[in-house]
Simulated assay, not measured.
Amino acid sequence: MSPSAQYIKDLCLFIAGVISYITGLTTNLFIVGVSVVDRLIRRPLTPADLLITAIATSRIIFQLNIFVIIFFQEYSAAYSIAFSSIGNFSIYCNIWCSVLLSVFYSLKIGNFHNFLHRCLKLISRRVLLLILGSVLLSIAYTSVLHMRNFMIIPKNSTQEGDGSLAIRLIMDLFLLLWNVLPFLFYAGSSFALLGSLCRHMYRMRREDNVTGRMDAYYKTIKFTIFSFFSFAFYVTINVFGSDFFDHFGSLLMWNCFPLLHSIYIIYMTARLRATFLNILHGLNKCFLPRKCSPSRSKVVAQIN
């Protein structure tokens, strides 16, 4: 590829990445802002609302961190380590909170037996502790990651073969497990929810009890499938993204799941969707009447 073509490619990826990050930052700020306003007016937040707010907060931290890295590239090694730590922390906090939300929805919506419903009650009462646990796990992972990155391999090949390569292999396996484990939890909860919904829909059709509620089932199934594939794509990019994409391409791909998932969360959550529609309605009332007032006056005159 010629230098000019490479420059155009990097420029397009950079522009697309900046647009996606601005959109994602605005979307997640909206989610957190709605939760803050609800708390200020003493409206209670459900466990799902707390998990959604935690997910949006972790994505805001990640997106702000990326903005700093892109636009302020001249900084010391200490700042580089700090930005890298914040980025890794926000990524895995986002992953584990997304897993918690998937498990919560699976237990809440799925038609399971009493033991899992007791688990749901336990999660509902301990959601803040689970979010705190996700934060601590993400901090622990970030620490292990930096131990791996700054590990000094001895120059002596005998020593390297005896100790350092084994330690590095163990850490690589641990880091791979750290991505595979949340994916397995997410996949298990998603498939369990899909199986429960499909089984319930089949029972309703067999008993000729099909009502308008079927639309809600279809909407939940679409949301679950979309969330699962988005999460799978996000974990894949997190593990193998640097092997297939350059710097700007990785940043753009890295933001696909947070952006699309946050938009879909707003669409699926009644509280967020109603607030967003009210904002749009308020904007329409501010800007549209001035343009429509002449035509409206003509209609009123004709009626009179």
Rank of each mutant, 00 (worst) to 15 (best):
R273P: 05
T142A: 07
F67I: 02
R205K: 07
F183G: 08
A232V: 04
P294A: 02
S250E: 11
N65L: 03
R205A: 07
L272Q: 02
L25Q: 06
L175G: 04
A78K: 02
Y202K: 08
N65E: 10
P289N: 12
I152S: 10
H113M: 08
I237N: 13
L25E: 08
C93E: 12
R296Y: 01
F72I: 07
P44R: 03
N28E: 15
H200R: 13
V99H: 01
L137R: 00
V36L: 05
T23S: 12
N284K: 03
F83R: 02
R148E: 15
I95N: 01
Q302P: 03
I167H: 08
S143V: 02
K291P: 07
I123R: 07
L251E: 09
S295G: 13
L132A: 15
Y267A: 06
V235D: 07
L50N: 01
R271A: 03
R39M: 01
S80G: 13
Y21Q: 08
I131C: 12
P154L: 09
R271W: 00
T23L: 12
L136S: 14
L122Q: 11
C97K: 00
L25D: 06
D243W: 01
I41D: 07
G195Y: 03
I61T: 04
L51K: 06
T46L: 13
Y218K: 04
L252G: 09
S227F: 00
M201V: 13
E207S: 11
F226K: 02
L259S: 10
S4W: 05
V235C: 09
K222I: 09
S35A: 15
G212P: 05
P44Q: 07
L107T: 02
L169R: 09
S102P: 04
A166R: 06
R213V: 06
I52L: 09
V18C: 08
V299L: 08
F231I: 10
R290Q: 11
F287M: 08
C292H: 10
G133L: 00
F223E: 14
G161V: 00
L64H: 07
W178K: 02
F228R: 02
D243Y: 01
A216Q: 14
I22S: 14
T275K: 05
L280H: 14
F244N: 09
F257D: 10
G33F: 03
L184R: 01
K285W: 06
I123A: 11
